[in-house]
């Protein structure tokens, strides 16, 4: 579905932030990007979305280079969930969410009643329909993140690209967002997300991509890739992974730091 072939990127030609990355995402995959600050995770996402132009190599969606796909069509294949930001203008939540319908709205038209209904439905699916008429700038961080996910859902794209969906959220909201992402994955969406929490990989993902200094150091299933040694090296800090029992004959792995 998404094939990344040998891409490099740098803002100046002398130093590359991304160095010859290659990987593929299949339909239904939930990929977690792990890596320390400055590893190039967000830069990679921006290259995948076509916001940044890669210096070499190609990003292909369903076999076509993204550079050759018009923005409007590309938005029908992949949707971006940015980190919840503040807005300059006081948009209502519903107005914000219905912006996701843009690739489906005619060239000189505005959103129709159907589009508004789709946006309201997306809000309802995420349990925040009561916020429809609130101002986007006045709802909480967790609610904003949900609204941005709702916006991405209205795009009806199969691939969701999320930039640290749980960043700066309290514990309850983090779990809520993870639950939402898990449900979306079950519904058949493919998801690429960045995270600072290795546990997210165990909770949600079937693939983990580990990045350091602009290169991929490991790519595979969480069990193969998220190990004591790899994480300890990645974050240059001691990390241990334990297997714990959750319910009857069900185990899951957790990752905890070791303080000395």
């Amino acid at each position: 579905m998404l094939a990344v072939d040998n891409i490099s990127f740098g803002y100046s030609s002398s130093s590359d932030l991304l160095k010859s990355l290659s990987f593929a995402v299949n339909k239904g995959d939930v990929v977690c990007l792990l890596g320390p600050n400055g590893a190039g995770k967000t830069t990679l996402l921006r290259c995948l979305l076509g916001i940044l132009k890669t210096r070499t190599g190609s990003v292909r969606v369903k076999g076509r280079k993204i550079g050759a796909i018009p923005a409007r069509e590309l938005a029908g294949y992949m949707a971006y969930v940015p980190q919840a930001t503040t807005m300059v203008f006081p948009h209502r939540v519903l107005d914000m969410v219905v912006m996701g319908r843009t690739p489906h709205i005619g060239f000189t038209a505005g959103p129709s009643d159907d589009d508004l209904a789709i946006a309201t439905e997306a809000l309802a699916k995420l349990g925040i329909v009561h916020l429809a008429d609130c101002l986007f700038s006045q709802i909480s961080g967790g609610e904003r993140q949900l609204a941005l996910i709702a916006r991405a859902l209205t795009q009806r794209a199969e691939l969701l690209i999320m930039d640290e969906p749980t960043s700066s959220l309290d514990y309850g909201n983090q779990v809520r967002i993870l639950q939402v992402i898990d449900n979306l994955a079950e519904q058949g969406y493919s998801i690429i997300m960045t995270s600072h929490f290795p546990n997210h990989a165990f909770l949600l993902c079937n693939k983990v991509l580990i990045m350091k200094n602009g290169t991929i150091t490991a790519f595979g299933s969480p069990d193969e890739v998220v190990t004591d040694s790899i994480l300890s090296e990645l974050y240059t800090t001691r990390v241990r992974i334990f297997e714990i029992e959750v319910g009857k004959s069900k185990t899951m792995k957790v990752c905890i730091p070791v303080l000395v």
Partner: peptide
């Protein structure tokens, strides 16, 4: 009007929402 409205969320987000 609708494209101008979407532009108010920022150029990069607007592009991912399908605006040239």
């Amino acid at each position: 009007r609708w494209k101008i409205n979407v532009l108010s969320v920022g150029d990069e987000e607007a592009q991912t929402l399908g605006i040239n």
